[in-house]
Simulated scan of single mutants.
Amino acid sequence: MRLLSFLLALLPLPAWAEDILLSGPPIWESAPLIALAETQPVEGVTFIFRPWASPEELRKMLMAKVPLIAVAPSPTAAVFDAGRIGAGRIGADGIGAGRIGADGIGADGIGLRVVSATVTEGSLSIVGRGGPVADLAELRGASLALPFKGHLPDLMMRRIAPPGAESWQPYYTGSLNAGVQLLLAGQVDNALLTEPLATLALAQDPGLSRRAGLCGLWREATALASCPPAGVVLVNPAFGNRREVLSAYRAAFATLAADPGAAAPLLARHFPEMERAREGFARINALDLAMPENAALLADFYAAIMEVEPDAIGGRLPGPDFYGP
C-alpha cells in the first residue's frame, strides 16, 4: 500500500483549467464570446458563456472573484464607472440605458476596464413607407416607433435631431417587437429597428423600405467620423491582464466580422429567437476598436450622449483608467 501511494505521488498532477466567465445580451456583439465558449481556443482556460438580463445581474458578475469578459451598452459601462446603476430597464436588445437618479445602486470599487468598443454599422435602421431620407427634417413630423424612452436608440436619435413637428415624433412602444407590428399595421409611419427585426419587417411588407441607417444620420449630425460605438467589452479586476485571452477574443471577432451572418447560429444556442437572424446580420459591418488606442472615439461618443442626457452616462465622462487594456 505504501509503495502504491509512493508511486502515485510521483505521477504528474493533472492540469486544471481556469474558468473565465463570458456574458452578454442577445445582440451581434455577444457572438464572439459565444464562439470562444464553443471553440475553447486558449490552453489552460475554460470559457463559459452565461447571458445577463439586467444591469444588476451584470454588476454582480463584475464584482465577483471569477474572471469575466462581458459585452454591455456603452452608457452602462460609463454608469458603472461613475458608481451608479439606474433602476431603468435594459431591454433584450442590450442597448438600453436606464435613467439614473436617486434610486441608483452603488457600484463603487468595481474597477472595470473597457478593452474594446464595438461598432456594428448597418444594425439600426429607420424603416417605413417612403423614400430615403438624409436628414430627420425630411420626416416632417412623422411618427417614429422606438422601444423605450431614454434608452440608447432614443438618446442617439435625440442627439441627431430634437423631436418635434418639424422633424420626428417619438412613439414609445414599451417592447422590441411592438414597433414591427405597429409598422405592419400602419399605426406608425416609421420605426427604428435593430437587426434582424428590420430585415424581417421588410420581408413581410414590400411597401416598406429602409429609409435611413442610423450611422449615416449620426455622422452627418455630429461631424464624428466614426459610427456610434454603442457596445463595449468589459473585464473585471479578477480578469487581470490576460493578453492571450484578449488575442483569442479579437481573433473570434475578426472571423465573425468577415462573415457576420454566422453570428446567428451561435447566438441561437443561447437565444433561440436569433435563429432567423442570419440574413439581417449579414449586412452588418462590424469593427472591433481596441483600447486604449481608440479611446478618443469612445470618449467622443460619450461626449455626444452627454449633450443630450448627462445622467445616461453617470453624470460625468469616464477617466483615463476606464479605457483598458
Rank of each mutant, 00 (worst) to 15 (best):
L3Q: 14
S5Y: 11
L8Q: 07
P12N: 03
P12Q: 10
I20T: 08
I20L: 03
L22E: 09
T39W: 04
V42N: 01
R50V: 05
W52K: 00
S54P: 09
P55D: 05
E57I: 00
M63Y: 04
M63F: 12
A64T: 00
P67Y: 00
V71A: 08
A72M: 06
P73W: 00
R84K: 14
R89P: 01
G91P: 04
G91K: 00
G101C: 07
G101D: 15
I105A: 05
I105V: 04
A117G: 15
T120K: 09
S125N: 10
V127I: 15
P153D: 05
R158Y: 05
R159H: 14
P163W: 09
E166D: 15
W168M: 13
V180D: 03
L192G: 06
E195D: 04
A198F: 06
T199R: 08
Q204W: 03
L208I: 06
S209K: 10
G216H: 03
A221H: 14
A223M: 06
A225T: 08
S226H: 08
C227L: 04
C227M: 02
P228M: 06
A230S: 09
A230P: 02
G231Y: 11
G231M: 08
N236W: 03
A238W: 00
G240A: 00
V245I: 13
Y249Q: 04
R250I: 02
A254S: 15
L267R: 06
R269T: 13
F271A: 02
M274P: 12
G280I: 07
R283Q: 13
D288E: 14
P292S: 03
Y302L: 08
Y302T: 13
M306P: 01
G314D: 12
D321P: 15
G324H: 11
